[in-house]
């Protein structure tokens, strides 16, 4: 589980190469310049990396980096 933040930051950078720094856990995606297309791309990259499905209704509830990290930790633990 410890590698999740690093993987997410890497996938974020691939999605949005001009992101200045690692994202802090709090703060809405829009505050960091991520729009709906960026987020759909990020979802695709996360799904492909972890080989899982993130339903749209789950994804819409993940408002920031911290929530996404917690969601992934729970999903990966459940699916393990």
């Amino acid at each position: 589980m410890t590698e999740i933040p690093g993987v997410l930051q890497d996938l974020l950078r691939r999605t949005k190469p001009d992101l200045a720094a690692p994202l802090p856990p709090a703060g809405d995606w829009a505050d960091w310049g991520l729009d709906s297309l960026d987020l759909a791309e990020l979802a695709a990259r996360i799904e492909q990396h972890y080989r899982l499905d993130i339903p749209d209704e789950d994804w819409r509830a993940l408002r920031d980096f911290g929530a996404l990290r917690a969601y992934l930790e729970a999903r990966l633990e459940r699916d393990a």
């Binding site: 297309l37 759909a40 791309e41 979802a43 695709a44 990259r45 799904e47 492909q48 749209d56 994804w59």
Partner: peptide
């Protein structure tokens, strides 16, 4: 199909 799913397909296909 859903636009969100097709967006994900587009990203994966591009990769």
């Amino acid at each position: 199909t859903l636009h969100t799913d097709n967006t994900r397909w587009a990203v994966r296909l591009s990769d």
